[in-house]
Design a protein around this nucleic acid. Sequence first.
DNA 1: TGTACATCAGTGAACGCGCGTTCACTGATGTAC
DNA 2: TGTACATCAGTGAACGCGCGTTCACTGATGTAC
Lengths: 230, 230
Amino acid sequence: MTATKRSHSRAARIAAIKAAAARQLASRGAAALSIREVARELDLVSSAIYRYFATRDELLTALIVDAYDDLGATVEAAEAPVARGRTRERWRVACRAVRSWAIANPHDYALLYGTPVPDYRAPALTIEAASRVIGVLGRIMDDDAAQRASVAPDDAGADVAGFLDVDNVAAVMPHVATGRYVRALIAWSHVFGSVSFELFGHFVGSVQDPGAYFECVVDELANLLGLASD
Amino acid sequence: MTATKRSHSRAARIAAIKAAAARQLASRGAAALSIREVARELDLVSSAIYRYFATRDELLTALIVDAYDDLGATVEAAEAPVARGRTRERWRVACRAVRSWAIANPHDYALLYGTPVPDYRAPALTIEAASRVIGVLGRIMDDDAAQRASVAPDDAGADVAGFLDVDNVAAVMPHVATGRYVRALIAWSHVFGSVSFELFGHFVGSVQDPGAYFECVVDELANLLGLASD
DNA sequence: TGTACATCAGTGAACGCGCGTTCACTGATGTAC
DNA sequence: TGTACATCAGTGAACGCGCGTTCACTGATGTAC
């Protein structure tokens, strides 16, 4: 009982540490995240943090997992209200949500999809956390395929079994034909590729209004996927 | 005359500093690049470096410019031997060259296309240097369009003038119809998006053999661009 | 309910490290007459 | 060709900074009998 009291305040402390660290991440980026600075913000001595996180990397891992989860939840929430059958609109909304989240949280986005932090090795935990967004985008493609199973025979004749993790991909979108996996991966990865290019400054000189451009891209990808128009 | 001697040895020093810095970049990444470490490698005192580069950022800028140039030259060299008319093959070869270069020089690639270095603002110089690779890929698309001007009417009806830097894009590929610009940008940026995903570990769990996958992607992009098959 | 003991949060000092940059300087290399 | 002067490369010490992590400790909170 009192045990719960102590563990409750412990949980609160952990949350406070993560929140402070997240704020620092948001304002100065992952490289600038420092245990001493976190401690300062909480009016603690730096060594106190070690009661909660054994190492800087452990704290960073927690932030990564939280960020993936936040992104996943955001995209889920954005896409949920759209009628299940309107797969193209779901796709659009989900893609927009990814981009908006990235723009609102550029350093978190960079932490997840940018250059890996040097000397940091991502534990399996983070890979699992990453799957939430993948799940949303995959489910949309899958629902579309399920609705119109007969329509498009796979044109990409390539035998994909040799170079994809077919089981994993199939688990995410069981109704999508194997021959369309490559396009699905292109569409999925391109969403992040576009956002990265925008955030990292590679559209300077070619794209003036990234928001409008992104809309076009999302529709082109929907075409590539053969999503039903509406 | 003797003036040239001094300036020659000066140029050699600058080259040596950049080479040492590039080695460190290659082995530990941009964040770990340190003027003191560079000086150590050259058996110099750290302050000596300031005779040649006013600041760490200036050195970093030089490395970025060199890296863009190296990438550009590599892709140009790879694509040059292919007959000009075989645009699809040129596209394939150029894309492969981008990927190979990235794999061979992962830290340079990350410096160019990954998360921007914190507190580093890229001068216009680097943007100019970046255009060399863009030029190669753009020229291929343009040559293809020039050869078969009549063929594909633009299907993407979007009026692109509002959100692209149409003049700049047109300068790179004057024969490509405005309506195809978005696809061209998708193809171009996706090459880097795929390479980034591979290098940064986001294909773990879905792509087993990134080389084979990349081949498929490149062909899909060629289809998207409507490049003549051969 | 009260006491003896164990657990845990947080302290404060220290270790050992590396960094970018400045500054006054020596000595060699080049220039002008 | 020789000398007086200016330019430049490189030195060595220092400034001031921040970092992650360890360790022996105090005092409060919780547990067992």
